[in-house]
């Protein structure tokens, strides 16, 4: 019996697909411009990974290898960096990726109820899971830095303040 080697599978368990290069045309130009800002190529790593995530929605192992090649790093090094930072997705997520702040200041203002309400109305059911229709993924996040506007949530890159358990359905209407 043969097994596919473990490294060929992405952490989400998706079958490996041939990698289509991210850095072509405009994205390549963007990277080249970024490289002029720093004295080392390595310093462009975080911005390069952002470009990957913005164009593909997540950072696959193939993308990591591509970035490594462009910045003269090893794929293992790049993976080490990707796994350190919470904002890079290592597997595909829902069309709308919702992050709810539940850290102490929001926690004492009802963030837990917002989480429950979101899980219910997105039909995700549990944190980290993607809804059956593939639209939503809800996760808890540590401090979004908008504590005075509890509870803040982020839907992809859109910041929404003062969310309560009650106004969740109204907010979700916009994301269909």
């Amino acid at each position: 019996m043969t097994h596919a080697p473990a490294f060929a599978l992405s952490p989400g368990g998706h079958a490996p697909e041939p990698h289509v290069p991210v850095f072509t045309g405009d994205t390549r130009k963007e990277l080249d411009e970024l490289l002029t800002r720093y004295p080392t190529k390595m310093a462009a790593l975080l911005p390069a990974l952002w470009i990957v995530q913005e164009s593909r929605g997540w950072v696959s192992e193939g993308s990591m290898a591509e970035v490594a090649d462009l910045l003269e790093l090893t794929p293992a090094y790049v993976k080490g960096v990707v796994t350190f930072y919470y904002m890079y997705h290592q597997h595909p997520v829902g069309k709308y990726f919702i992050q709810v702040c539940t850290t102490s200041p929001c926690g004492i203002c009802g963030a837990e109820d917002v989480v429950k309400s979101l899980l219910k109305h997105t039909t995700c059911g549990e944190l980290g899971a993607t809804s059956p229709d593939g639209k939503f993924t809800v996760i808890e996040v540590e401090c979004l830095g908008a504590c005075g506007f509890a509870t803040p949530i982020m839907v992809n890159s859109e910041f929404i303040e003062s969310v309560t358990a009650d106004n969740v359905p109204q907010i979700l209407e916009r994301f269909q």
């Binding site: 080392t40 390595m42 310093a43 462009a44 790593l45 975080l46 911005p47 990974l49 952002w50 910045l71 790093l73 080490g80 960096v81 350190f84 930072y85 919470y86 904002m87 890079y88 996040v141 540590e142 401090c143």
Partner: peptide
């Protein structure tokens, strides 16, 4: 642009992060 890590507010961690490290 950072990528989500409280510790990068620590000055030397921030420098490592800016250099493209953990």
């Amino acid at each position: 642009k950072g990528a989500g890590a409280y510790i990068c507010g620590e000055e030397t961690a921030l420098m490592n992060s800016l250099e493209g490290r953990r």
